[in-house]
Every structure is written in structure tokens, then in C-alpha cells.
Design a protein around this nucleic acid. Sequence first.
DNA 1: AAGTAAATAT
DNA 2: TATATTTACT
Length: 655
Amino acid sequence: MTVEEIRGNMGGGERGNNNYDNFPIGMRVLAVDDDTLCLKVLDGLLRKCQYQVTTTSQARMALKMLRENRDRFDLVISDVHMPDMDGFKLLELVGLEMDLPVIMLSANSDTKLVMKGISHGACDYLVKPVRIEELRNIWQHVIRKKKVEPKSESKSNDHDKSYQGSGESGRGQSTTGGNADQNGKCNKKRKDEEDENDENGNDNEDPTTQKRARVVWSIELHRKFVAAVGQLGIEKAVPKRILDLMNAEGLTRENVASHLQKYRLYLKRINSVQTQQANMVAALGGRDYMRMGSLDGLGDFRTFGGSGRYTHAALSSYTSGGGMLGRLNSAAGLSVRNLAASLLLQPSHCQNLSNSGNAFTKLNPNIPPHANQNASLFQGIPASLELDQLQQAKSTEHIPLDESRLLTADVLGCSNNSLSNVPNNPMLLQGNPLGNQHSLNMTPFSSDLFNTDVNGSSNWQNPIQLSKFQSSSFPLTESFINSHLPQNSVRGAATTHLQNIPLDFSSTATVSPPFEDSSRGEIQYRGSMAGAVQSMNQTPSQAWVDTKQRYSHNSNNTLSHNLTSQVPNNGSMASLSNENFGRRMDMSLIGRSNGGSSTVVQHTDHEKLTLDSRTRSNEDYLLESTKQQVGFSPQGYDSLDDECNEMGARWRHVR
DNA sequence: AAGTAAATAT
DNA sequence: TATATTTACT
């Protein structure tokens, strides 16, 4: 597409009141910088360039303006360091929600930062003080963006039949800096992919070779997909609409439909796994006193939970447990926090619910806390586990080899603040039929990123292999993660990373709560331990990928063993912590189990109950946990709580 | 056009 | 061989 074309397009009704005949004169730029002085200067410079400038000192406000009218701006230029919202976060959100080129601005020219910005989708990174010369050329990004995403164009073109695998990375596209926007987010990965693609289907470079390559659901593509679905809401997420939203090149409705089909399947499985687990918990859990997880730190999520985007119905459609989610929005759940301390669930209570996930359905979100004990019990476990997973996901994300990846993680973490405004991703929610506010609320956006960012298209469909440690099914998040992380490099790094890398966990409410939550009960505790341990023991990438195999064949390194035999045994997680666990974590974790059961539970296959093979492993884990629980004394919970809280704190600290 | 099942490719 | 993607069909 030429500049002329751009102009032509821009002059179209799409941009209505703006005259683009003189492009880039009049280009609408949104400048964001908390430093009003800088902002003013920037504003002045931009105006000198004859751009139509809009300024704001708040990232949130910027986001708001952008959301209000996506066609109101052509380009965003934002400072990196801002109090209300990290510039990168803004970048991420803008990249995800709108297709606007974003230019980062910072006085810090640290290569890492620049890398972070670029890899996160910034089309440019300017170092303050900005010179007008630099600003004079920023319009190119607008054009580039347009060029890269000739959405409408490609969709209807015939020659397009020979579309390439991964939409935007396809050869048909400009391979120059064009893919600055979302593609840039995972530069490294993207590159690899592109390389692969090139190697694989190189020949179909020319349309003559009508050999249509099969669509490769690249991470990027999948992310778009997920984002689209999220935006539409699961209900309206039909192929056609998704396709429109995806804005991907060379993708047909059929492709999307197919992917959607698979995705739904995946959701179902996830769901069923969880349901079963829930049942297991219901049946076996609660033997002992359990505390419900606290919902501390939910913070922003609460609001999010209220977002009516995902209707109960919608969620249910993918939830075998039908309606389990409904409970989530409940105040009951949210307020559990304080109850937790004094609530003790008796086995008897649980038994009533033991046989079905449907029981949940009956729980009214609004019923008073005390009436919700059973529910809480259910929630508690999966909930905490979920959280743990999320964390893991994060940790996983952090283990990354490069900045870009870290960035991703950041986004995940940071996005919380904006959760309430961001188009969420129902899919994630689905993942947690049992869900809890946590997963419900937080998963959405973050997972979104996760899925898309980290995982390849190959693993997310396999919730089952998620493993017993993860126990409560993975939110898509985990599932998606993995495959694409260069495993080797990560592996060795895991340990260190966990300790030194900026874990984003607590940067947001999202993360911290998990720990606290998990601190409440033995089960939860274990769950988190498992999670923690796992993430530490394994390479992020593989951790979730082939857990199944690993665990079944590698008993020595298996968490189950560690958890089952070590934990109850001496009450120390030391064994777990040894090499991989961050010291801090260790400390906080250790001692946890003191006062716990003295029973040594040896994990053996014989103990397994006959369960659906698909979910057996997961349930196994739960079973084990449950068993171990028996005999645990209610005592020490407080300390547990404390410790766990501390743990959370430590995590934060570590970060 | 959506959804599902069968076919086919990797 | 198992999976994932594409195609066919209602």
C-alpha cells in the first residue's frame, strides 16, 4: 500500500471529519505523559509537525479516550514511566484493543527498556528529550501499520487464496518493520516462527503455487483469536465475528470456525476436568477442617467480577457443571475472607454436595456466608489452586529468556488495574467452572495474554495433561504456556529466575491473593505448594506441557512424591525447596506443615481410584491431598495463614 | 453461516 | 500413531 493509498483510505468516511489529503498533516496523535512539562513540550513539538494533538497526563485517561472512540486517533505516543499505569501496560492494551501504532517515550534509553517496549509492540521508542526531527517522521508508523494490516483487502482477495500459515507473519506481508504492532510483542518467538514458516513452506512464495498452506495458528494468531472471542463474549463468538475482529490476513471463516471448534473442545475438557475434580473434592475433601481461602487482595478483581460481560448463561454453555460459575460473582465468595478465619467445615456438610457439580449450581451467590460453607469449601480448593496456577503461569512467564517475555509477564501482572475496562476473555473464565472470583476475575485478561503469548498453538488443547499437580485444571493460561518457550535455556534458568527475576506476582493484586488464599487449608496449601514446587522444579515450558509423561515416568522428580511423602512426613518442604526453590520461598513454606498430619502418604498408583482415565491424574492428586488431610489437626492454621501470607509477601519481595 | 463429523495432513 | 487442521455436509 502506498502513501497515496493510505491517504485515500484515510480520507474515507472511516475517519470522517479529518482531512487526510495532506497527510501526515493533521494526523491525530494522542500524547501521554504524567510529567506535564514534558507533555507540554511534546505537545508543542507535535504541533509543530502539524499533527492534531491531544494530550493527557494519565495513562488511564488515555486508554479511556482510546476506547471511547477507536478511530479518534492515528497514533499514540506515550511515556514509559507513569504512576497510574505503566506505559508498557498501556502499550499492551492499546496493541490488543486497537490497532494503533504506539510510540514509547522515555528518558531512559536502557537497551532493555527499549527492547521491552519494542518487543511489546511499540513501533518506536524515543528517548527524551525528543527532537522534533524524530517526531516529524512518526507518521510513518501509521502508514506502516496500515500496510501491515490491510484487513479488508486481504480477506476478499482471490490471490489471497494462497495465504500463508500464520496470518501476519506470512510471507505475503511486508517483512520489514511493518509488523511492529502486536507482532513485535514476541519478537523472538515470532522470529522463530517466521523462520520455521519460511523453511517449511517457502516455495509458496508466489501465488502461482496455489498450494495453499494450512493455517498455522501461531501464537499471535491465537492471541488475536482469543482476544476476539473475549471481546465478543463467548455467546457471540462465532466464526464470522471472530474473524472480523481478528483482523488477520489470509484467514478464512472456516479456519476460524475450525479453531473455534477446537477451542471449545478444549474448554469443555478443561471444564470437565475441573468438574470432576470438584466432585472429587466434594466427595473426599472436607474430611477435615478446612478453611476457606481468603480473598484478600482481590482488589480490582471484584469489580471485574461484576462486569456483566460474561453472563452466567454464556459461561455455562461451556461448563459442564452448568452454572457453577454463577456462584462466583457472589458476594458470598468475596466476603469469605473474614469468614475463613473462623469457619470450619465439617465433613458432613460436604457430603451433601459430594456427588455433583450441580450442587454448586444451587448455591445462590447471595446466600449468606454461613450458608455458603459448603460452597466455600468447594471453592476454596479449586480457587486456591487456580491462583497458584496463575502464579505459576506468571513465574513461568518470568523465566523467560528475554526481555520480551518478561514483558509479557508484566502485562499479565499489570493488566489487573485495567481488568475492569478491558475486554475480557471469557475463555479463561470457562476454564474455571469451579472457579472462584479469582480465576474468574483475573484470568480473563491475563490469560489472554498468556495463551497467546506464551503458548504455542499445540498445547492449549490439552488440559488433561496438565497433571495432577496442577490439580485443578489449568486455566487456559497454563495450558497455553509452554511449548514455545525454549526449554533448554529456561530450564537452567528457572531456579535463578525465581529468585532474582522480577517476578511480577505481586505487582498486582492478582497475584498476591493467591498465596494468601492458598494458605488457608491443608489442601490449598498443598495445592500451592505443588504449584510452587512444580514451577520451580520444572522448566516452565515443559512444566505444563508434558506433565503427564513426566509425572508418570519420572517418579523421582515427581511432585506427587515430594508432596505426598515429604510434606506430611516431616512437615518440611525442604526437600522440595532444595535446588529449585527460592530460599525465601522455602522458608515460608517450610514449617507450614508442622502440626499437620503425621501420616506419611505414599503416593502409589495402587491407591488410585478408578476414575476417568482422562482426569485420573488430576483427581489422584486431589485424592491424595484429601487423604493426607485426614488426621490433620485444625491447629496451626493460623500460623499457616500467617506463613502463607508471609509467603506471599516474600514473593512480592523477591520480585 | 454455524456446527459437527469425517478426511487428511503433519 | 497421534494430533491438528481442513473439508464436507446438514
